[in-house]
Amino acid sequence: CHSECLGNCSQPDDPTKCVACRNFYLDGRCVETCPPPYYHFQDWRCVNFSFCQDLHHKCKNSRRQGCHQYVIHNNKCIPECPSGYTMNSSNLLCTPCLGPCPKVCHLLEGEKTIDSVTSAQELRGCTVINGSLIINIRGGNNLAAELEANLGLIEEISGYLKIRRSYALVSLSFFRKLRLIRGETLEIGNYSFYALDNQNLRQLWDWSKHNLTITQGKLFFHYNPKLCLSEIHKMEEVSGTKGRQERNDIALKTNGDQASCENELLKFSYIRTSFDKILLRWEPYWPPDFRDLLGFMLFYKEAPYQNVTEFDGQDACGSNSWTVVDIDPPLRSNDPKSQNHPGWLMRGLKPWTQYAIFVKTLVTFSDERRTYGAKSDIIYVQTDATNPSVPLDPISVSNSSSQIILKWKPPSDPNGNITHYLVFWERQAEDSELFELDYCLKGLKLPSRTWSPPFESEDSQKHNQSEYEDSAGECCSCPKTDSQILKELEESSFRKTFEDYLHNVVFVPRKT
């Protein structure tokens, strides 16, 4: 048989008469490798580009789960590009990614509803959504962080984005990388972005840091009482949809009607710091009717980097990364020049730590249904340095008659930039024990000054392991946590139920 035959053949030295091919099969003959313009397919066939392209389009058009959109890589027609490569849609070739590779997620039936953290986790790592997304989240724990972890990498949506009755959302900033909504599939009414009845939605994105392009379709905003109209108009300008909307697409009466839409800028007039305090004062603000001013709200939190936005980490279910302080308005003076500047002394802060701070007014709604208010920009203030805590785990070892090696770990709280350490030492008198000992005694162990690591005695271990207080009263049991108490109650309830079950099964009433 021919060298490319495997198993047997019907005619000697003829690659077209093989029972099976050793390498690849091409047009009725066995070959060692697939010549151009053919590609290896499933490690035994040679196919042309049209064959591989037909497989790709067949799966793409069917949208069946589990099928493969075949691509070409290293002269092979394979189910998908290997790690580190992405497909070129024009020629199906796998090309190296520039940075992290995109991950295209194809949605069944063309859309997916995100109504819980669990459903959001199914899209973790996706960068391109081939379909439409509907966000409908009523509640949950730590929602802002969970949504950002699972949806934060999405850069492109081919269909539309719909935010509907998501009472738990305060902001859409968890879509931190969303840059493009194509609108290839539109919501009824030709809408590519749809926001309806979101009672706590206050911000779409921080438009000073976020760009969003909507290729096709219109915007729809109705019944978002805490979303200011200025935020919607800003989205029109940034996304390129200005002029597409009709009169009733953006409701003037049901958007922002319960919001404090600040239209003035508060400026800080005085800032002073110490290692654990920050004193702030800002310019006074009074609405047209000074009785509408209820006070100020001061927001602050630790910020290692200057990239904080107002609604980071917030949701309507209680999660809030900001510390909020309510401040009463100052006494009002008739003389504008003698107006008191409101302020606040922030206490209990960490030394040498940068804080993000902003302040906003708290006002009631005027009778004319106009909203007044003022808010400052987010500023960054760093507390002063102070003395560091003591170095940890000092170790001293003498390696000769004239040297001592000293080692330690950095302090747990540096409280500033540590530039150097101060080492103090003092000579001590020799131990009298060394002169009084009889060095001729056998088995004498000389006193040693070398360091030995501390260890816990058996008594201390027994005390720590004991669940009861000892007789001397030195140790006591740790208080039980809520989960331990709940577990004990469940076990007790189970024992009672099981005992009742045994009584009912074992003891049967005697027939009379």
Results as ranks from 00 to 15, higher is better:
residue 350 K to M: 09
residue 144 A to P: 04
residue 227 L to T: 06
residue 176 R to W: 01
residue 306 Q to S: 14
residue 113 T to H: 15
residue 215 T to P: 15
residue 249 D to H: 01
residue 150 N to Y: 09
residue 211 N to M: 12
residue 112 K to T: 15
residue 226 K to W: 13
residue 388 P to A: 01
residue 334 N to V: 13
residue 149 A to C: 11
residue 369 R to P: 04
residue 228 C to T: 05
residue 385 A to V: 08
residue 240 G to Y: 13
residue 337 K to G: 09
residue 171 S to F: 15
residue 151 L to G: 00
residue 187 E to H: 07
residue 118 T to A: 02
residue 204 L to N: 04
residue 253 K to G: 07
residue 242 K to E: 13
residue 221 F to K: 01
residue 384 D to N: 05
residue 110 G to D: 05
residue 332 R to Y: 02
residue 269 S to A: 06
residue 241 T to I: 08
residue 175 F to P: 00
residue 294 L to I: 06
residue 300 Y to H: 05
residue 297 M to C: 14
residue 243 G to F: 15
residue 322 W to T: 03
residue 373 G to S: 13
residue 167 Y to C: 14
residue 335 D to H: 05
residue 286 W to N: 09
residue 324 V to A: 15
residue 361 T to F: 15
residue 235 M to F: 13
residue 302 E to M: 02
residue 173 S to V: 11
residue 255 N to R: 08
residue 379 I to Q: 14
residue 196 L to V: 15
residue 261 C to V: 02
residue 117 V to Y: 03
residue 377 D to V: 03
residue 219 L to H: 03
residue 325 V to C: 15
residue 383 T to L: 01
residue 103 K to E: 14
residue 321 S to G: 08
residue 406 L to N: 14
residue 195 A to F: 09
residue 289 D to L: 06
residue 330 P to S: 11
residue 119 S to W: 04
residue 106 H to C: 04
residue 106 H to N: 00
residue 335 D to R: 11
residue 381 V to H: 05
residue 399 N to P: 14
residue 210 H to L: 03
residue 378 I to V: 14
residue 106 H to A: 03
residue 146 E to D: 05
residue 318 G to A: 04
residue 402 S to R: 09
residue 305 Y to S: 04
residue 228 C to E: 02
residue 135 I to R: 00
residue 147 L to D: 00
residue 190 N to C: 07
residue 407 K to V: 11
residue 254 T to D: 10
residue 213 T to I: 13
residue 234 K to E: 14
residue 295 G to P: 07
residue 160 Y to L: 07
residue 308 V to K: 07
residue 238 V to G: 14
residue 334 N to S: 10
residue 138 R to C: 13
residue 264 E to L: 13
residue 369 R to I: 08
residue 200 N to V: 13
residue 136 N to F: 12
residue 400 S to A: 15
residue 338 S to K: 06
residue 353 T to C: 15
residue 384 D to H: 13
residue 119 S to V: 12
residue 394 P to L: 09
residue 353 T to G: 04
residue 208 S to H: 06
residue 344 W to A: 13
residue 266 L to S: 02
residue 114 I to M: 06
residue 308 V to R: 08
residue 167 Y to K: 15
residue 315 D to P: 05
residue 116 S to I: 07
residue 161 L to I: 14
residue 329 P to Q: 15
residue 267 K to R: 11
residue 209 K to Y: 13
residue 307 N to L: 11
residue 229 L to K: 06
residue 338 S to G: 04
residue 349 L to G: 01
residue 108 L to K: 04
residue 161 L to Q: 00
residue 291 R to I: 07
residue 144 A to E: 15
residue 267 K to H: 11
residue 204 L to A: 14
residue 168 A to V: 09
residue 284 P to C: 14
residue 126 C to S: 01
residue 352 W to V: 14
residue 263 N to Q: 05
residue 295 G to D: 15
residue 167 Y to M: 15
residue 127 T to D: 13
residue 353 T to L: 05
residue 236 E to W: 15
residue 301 K to E: 05
residue 231 E to P: 01
residue 246 E to A: 05
residue 360 K to L: 15
residue 164 R to C: 15
residue 144 A to F: 15
residue 214 I to Y: 04
residue 271 I to M: 05
residue 378 I to K: 06
residue 352 W to L: 12
residue 229 L to M: 03
residue 263 N to Y: 10
residue 364 T to Q: 01
residue 369 R to H: 03
residue 193 F to R: 00
residue 154 I to C: 05
residue 113 T to G: 13
residue 258 Q to A: 06
residue 160 Y to T: 05
residue 118 T to L: 05
residue 204 L to R: 00
residue 197 D to N: 15
residue 113 T to A: 06
residue 281 R to M: 08
residue 397 V to Q: 15
residue 205 W to I: 03
residue 328 D to K: 12
residue 251 A to R: 07
residue 320 N to L: 09
residue 388 P to Y: 01
residue 237 E to I: 07
residue 334 N to A: 07
residue 207 W to Q: 07
residue 340 N to E: 09
residue 277 K to L: 09
residue 323 T to L: 14
residue 140 G to Y: 07
residue 188 I to N: 02
residue 346 M to S: 05
residue 194 Y to W: 11
residue 116 S to A: 06
residue 211 N to L: 12
residue 283 E to L: 09
residue 332 R to Q: 04
residue 377 D to A: 06
residue 351 P to Y: 08
residue 297 M to P: 01
residue 333 S to Q: 11
residue 290 F to C: 00
residue 400 S to H: 09
residue 322 W to C: 02
residue 380 Y to H: 01
residue 238 V to L: 10
residue 259 A to G: 04
residue 208 S to A: 13
residue 161 L to S: 00
residue 262 E to R: 13
residue 240 G to T: 13
residue 269 S to C: 11
residue 171 S to G: 06
residue 379 I to E: 03
residue 271 I to Q: 02
residue 222 H to P: 00
residue 226 K to T: 06
residue 195 A to R: 00
residue 206 D to R: 03
residue 219 L to W: 14
residue 161 L to W: 00
residue 135 I to P: 00
residue 204 L to Q: 02
residue 305 Y to E: 04
residue 278 I to N: 00
residue 202 R to I: 01
residue 286 W to A: 04
residue 179 R to T: 08
residue 196 L to F: 06
residue 373 G to K: 06
residue 122 E to D: 05
residue 168 A to G: 00
residue 118 T to K: 12
residue 360 K to P: 00
residue 406 L to S: 07
residue 404 I to M: 06
residue 149 A to P: 04
residue 379 I to D: 01
residue 350 K to G: 05
residue 109 E to H: 12
residue 411 P to F: 02
residue 259 A to M: 08
residue 144 A to D: 02
residue 106 H to Y: 07
residue 143 L to R: 06
residue 364 T to A: 15
residue 117 V to F: 12
residue 315 D to R: 12
residue 207 W to K: 06
residue 158 S to L: 12
residue 267 K to V: 11
residue 360 K to F: 10
residue 185 T to P: 12
residue 115 D to H: 04
residue 147 L to F: 13
residue 119 S to A: 03
residue 354 Q to T: 05
residue 360 K to C: 09
residue 172 L to A: 05
residue 293 L to V: 07
residue 243 G to R: 04
residue 274 S to P: 00
residue 348 G to W: 13
residue 192 S to T: 01
residue 111 E to S: 14
residue 165 R to S: 15
residue 370 R to D: 12
residue 292 D to H: 13
residue 289 D to H: 13
residue 208 S to L: 14
residue 234 K to G: 13
residue 254 T to M: 14
residue 159 G to M: 15
residue 119 S to L: 10
residue 250 I to E: 15
residue 134 I to P: 00
residue 257 D to F: 05
residue 253 K to V: 08
residue 400 S to Q: 01
residue 347 R to F: 06
residue 402 S to Y: 10
residue 308 V to G: 14
residue 284 P to R: 09
residue 196 L to R: 07
residue 173 S to L: 08
residue 368 E to Y: 11
residue 274 S to L: 13
residue 201 L to I: 05
residue 201 L to F: 09
residue 311 F to S: 14
residue 320 N to T: 12
residue 242 K to V: 15
residue 233 H to M: 00
residue 172 L to H: 01
residue 280 L to F: 04
residue 159 G to T: 01
residue 217 G to L: 01
residue 388 P to H: 01
residue 131 G to F: 02
residue 282 W to L: 09
residue 206 D to S: 09
residue 382 Q to M: 04
residue 400 S to Y: 14
residue 343 G to Q: 09
residue 349 L to F: 03
residue 397 V to L: 07
residue 311 F to G: 08
residue 238 V to F: 03
residue 345 L to Q: 09
residue 199 Q to D: 15
residue 361 T to W: 08
residue 201 L to K: 00
residue 151 L to H: 00
residue 389 S to V: 03
residue 371 T to H: 09
residue 155 E to V: 14
residue 193 F to A: 02
residue 268 F to Q: 00
residue 323 T to V: 15
residue 283 E to Y: 03
residue 317 C to E: 04
residue 233 H to A: 10
residue 394 P to M: 09
residue 262 E to G: 15
residue 212 L to C: 03
residue 265 L to P: 11
residue 201 L to V: 08
residue 352 W to F: 12
residue 319 S to D: 10
residue 188 I to P: 04
residue 293 L to C: 07
residue 125 G to F: 03
residue 305 Y to K: 00
residue 296 F to P: 06
residue 140 G to F: 03
residue 369 R to S: 04
residue 175 F to K: 00
residue 266 L to W: 01
residue 261 C to S: 03
residue 168 A to M: 05
residue 153 L to Y: 10
residue 345 L to V: 12
residue 389 S to C: 06
residue 349 L to M: 07
residue 176 R to N: 02
residue 354 Q to A: 07
residue 288 P to E: 11
residue 283 E to W: 06
residue 330 P to M: 13
residue 273 T to A: 04
residue 370 R to H: 02
residue 402 S to A: 09
residue 389 S to A: 15
residue 333 S to I: 08
residue 180 L to I: 14
residue 255 N to M: 11
residue 370 R to L: 05
residue 114 I to T: 01
residue 394 P to F: 02
residue 359 V to W: 01
residue 362 L to G: 15
residue 280 L to H: 01
residue 404 I to V: 07
residue 130 N to A: 11
residue 253 K to E: 14
residue 154 I to T: 06
residue 114 I to H: 01
residue 128 V to D: 07
residue 265 L to A: 05
residue 369 R to G: 05
residue 341 H to M: 07
residue 287 P to W: 03
residue 317 C to D: 02
residue 219 L to A: 10
residue 127 T to A: 05
residue 298 L to D: 00
residue 154 I to A: 03
residue 123 L to R: 01
residue 204 L to S: 08
residue 116 S to G: 12
residue 140 G to E: 12
residue 171 S to T: 07
residue 314 Q to L: 12
residue 266 L to C: 03
residue 382 Q to P: 04
residue 393 D to M: 14
residue 281 R to Y: 02
residue 268 F to S: 01
residue 200 N to R: 05
residue 259 A to C: 09
residue 399 N to D: 15
residue 315 D to V: 14
residue 270 Y to R: 02
residue 274 S to D: 04
residue 286 W to F: 05
residue 177 K to T: 07
residue 283 E to H: 07
